[in-house]
């Protein structure tokens, strides 16, 4: 059985359901739209800042504020790609066609990841340019140190959030359960834990808190993170690998 066959099959699967287009479009719209809005509003804030405050201002990161909302659509995308197999019973038909479960799972995740990355990369560049245009005189430029890394980093962050959701859904085998856990987790819980001083020391190692660092060009005032942009991203990669390993083990062991 060729991996190429399975990749092709998974590509057909992913492009032939509506949820793919809907969730990825929403991810782009939320990220670009909210980024533009906050950037436009921040233009006035920048005007009022003194020299000290301007030292910590990060126009690149401001334009990526929308990822906090856009990532939720990415999570739904990841959950639907894997969860659609379980909620419909398609998983039994799929595994009868591709009984090598590791090949099946990783082909599916690879295809979905590539698609998510392409969408996220385009979204990232559009978000950056639209946001910087809205910031007017305070804008960062792609050639500035760390900016290109942040723009590509934002695309990688959005992609990995989706992959993390795919891994978690493979473990939980239910889209409803997965959404019920992942949405409040990334929309409410980790941002709160990451902002409360008492919990920040631990929360900074959570996937989104650590991974988000790669989108920053300027470290915020009072930043305590013991890792840099790629260090934080590495922590997120470890979380994703752990989720995928658990998912693979569950798929291997359990009855379909």
């Amino acid at each position: 059985m060729h991996a190429g066959y399975v990749w092709k099959s998974e590509w057909t699967k992913i492009r032939s359901v509506r949820s793919t287009g809907t969730t990825l479009a929403l991810a782009a719209v939320f990220t670009i739209g909210l980024g533009f809005l906050i950037s436009a509003l921040s233009k006035n804030e920048f005007a009022k800042m003194d020299a000290h405050e301007l030292r910590f201002a990060d126009p690149t990161f401001i334009s990526f504020v929308g990822t906090s909302l856009g990532q939720l659509a990415m999570i739904v995308f990841g959950v639907m790609v894997v969860g659609g197999e379980y909620s419909t019973g398609m998983i039994r038909t799929s595994l009868a066609a591709v009984p090598r479960r590791g090949l099946f799972l990783f082909s599916k995740i690879a295809v979905a990841t590539l698609l998510a990355f392409v969408v996220a990369l385009v979204t990232s560049f559009v978000t950056f340019f639209v946001g910087q245009a809205a910031l007017g005189p305070y804008k960062a430029s792609l050639g500035d140190p760390g900016v290109l890394r942040a723009v590509i980093g934002a695309a990688l962050y959005m992609t990995l959030i989706a992959v993390f959701a795919m891994g978690v859904t493979t473990v939980l085998r239910s889209p409803m359960l997965s959404l019920g856990i992942l949405m409040p987790l990334f929309f409410l819980l980790t941002p709160i834990l990451g902002n409360v001083p008492a919990t920040r020391k631990v929360a900074q190692y959570l996937p989104d808190q650590a991974g988000g660092k790669v989108m920053q060009v300027v470290a915020p005032e009072g930043d305590i993170a013991p890792y840099g942009p790629w260090g934080g991203f590495g922590i997120m990669v470890l979380w994703v690998l752990a989720a995928l390993c658990c998912g693979w083990l569950v798929l291997k062991k359990r009855d379909a």
Binding site: Y5, V6, K8, S9, E10, T12, K13, S16, V17, R18, S19, G84, E85, T88, G89, M90, I91, R92, T93, S94, A96, A97, V98, P99
Partner: peptide, 30 residues
């Protein structure tokens, strides 16, 4: 395996959001 064994276990074991054509196409391609 589909070239050795064809099985109908559960008629509902498919993704309802996919057309009949694409359901069969993704199985054929695999």
């Amino acid at each position: 395996p589909l070239k050795y064994v064809g099985a109908l276990l559960d008629a509902k074991a498919l993704h309802g959001g996919r057309s009949a054509y694409h359901h069969l196409l993704c199985l054929a391609q695999s």
